[in-house]
Design a protein around this nucleic acid. Structure first.
Lengths: 207, 207
DNA sequence: TCATATTGTTTCGTGACGCTACTATCTGCC
DNA sequence: GGCAGATAGTAGCGTCACGAAACAATATGA
């Protein structure tokens, strides 16, 4: 679909002015449509889409980023809305709130055991399954393009880019055997490297 | 940015067993996150996300598919919700309702001139712009993968797959010079070929 | 002709969301 | 030390999205 490359001889442009629009337009619509399908007719409807998003976030964010504020930034919403979602998940026993060790205003949000179990029914798993079925080359290219688009759109929208520490510009891999984060001034283990970080800086992508 | 190709050696896979899981998981989260970013901090907030989606749909659906029911199917929602969205856009003067020529229960929804002008401010344009900036090869691969995922997820969710007539299994290109749709039993012009159709059948993809 | 299906609409309750106001705490500057 | 301003989190309010259910109008098929 919408890939005229094989039928396009370099000299013949059937509808050059129009084709420049519709093709990326269709991709963007498809992307939004896919995201919508994820939460429609999902197997487990006991949580709302916003609640699933929050649960996923706190499951994959690093310690520094597991606060209501960081979640609101990630999710491009207000602190009020994020607070409400977190509160509902705490009421369901899927998240819990711990005192922040250094900031009396803030809290550290953690998944409970029930929260971790709940993730097994994540409606996103269907899409993950489909992505898993792609060939490794297509999957790699797809992921790379998505990350690229995420950074580009975040720049346009003046939104922060979230990413995994392993791909972060603050990540110092010059020492052999260990990885150091210049931002949090701490050593990272392999679990840290796969965690979402609010202070992510593009520039160390290694996919 | 995010052009890691030269730094990726094909043989080095740091965490093969674990990468099989987290990577598609991350891609899926990224995709949903991207879709969310589209409607946050958008330039034109005079329409709601649901209204933009409907406006986009009726702008690109073919005559057969420009009904409230078809839109509700496309958008994986109920007819009641779709009806409400359409009603609001008619009240804004962006859509108009015409009597269906053969079915007295149904209506044909059309964009008004104001509706067509409104599309110039579509918040999706930022994402479209980012996609347009991709290299042709990456864009092609990305679009193809999205379409593939869309079909796969629609199958899982028992949702109909929408697609453009030019990519449809009902499309008969055997006659030279003209294209015939075996489903609607009609000849298609080039505009028809780019329109969304509710009766789309995968199987004629020409990427 | 009549039972059944389909199309579209309305109403109602719930949740998502942005906005505003508010408290508590932190940070930096004097 | 003390104070101004920034920041974290929360509550309340109004609006919109959405699903469910009930309904009217029309189509379809036996």
């Amino acid at each position: 679909m919408s890939e005229p490359a094989p039928m396009m001889s370099p000299t013949s442009q059937p509808e050059p002015a129009q084709d420049a629009g519709p093709i990326p337009c269709h991709s963007a619509e498809l992307l939004v449509h896919l995201a919508r399908l994820v939460h429609s007719a999902a197997a487990d409807v006991s949580l709302t889409p916003a609640q699933w998003t929050a649960l996923r976030y706190f499951a994959s964010a690093n310690r520094m980023s597991r606060t209501p504020s960081a979640f609101s930034e990630f999710n491009a919403t207000t602190r009020g809305t994020a607070s409400q979602t977190v509160k509902s998940l705490i009421a369901l026993g899927l998240l819990e709130k711990r005192a922040h060790e250094s900031d009396g205003r803030s809290f550290l949000i953690e998944l409970t055991e029930a929260g971790r179990e709940k993730l097994a029914d994540d409606p996103l798993d269907d899409l993950i399954h489909c992505i898993k079925d792609l060939s490794p080359a297509r999957r790699a290219a797809f992921t790379e393009t998505l990350a690229h688009l995420g950074e580009a759109l975040a720049r346009l929208r003046a939104a922060p880019t979230f990413g995994k520490c392993g791909d972060c510009g603050h990540c110092d891999t010059s020492r052999s055997g260990e990885v150091f984060c210049r931002c949090s001034q701490s050593l990272l283990n392999s679990a840290d490297m796969r965690a979402l970080c609010i202070d992510f800086a593009p520039g160390n992508l290694r996919r």
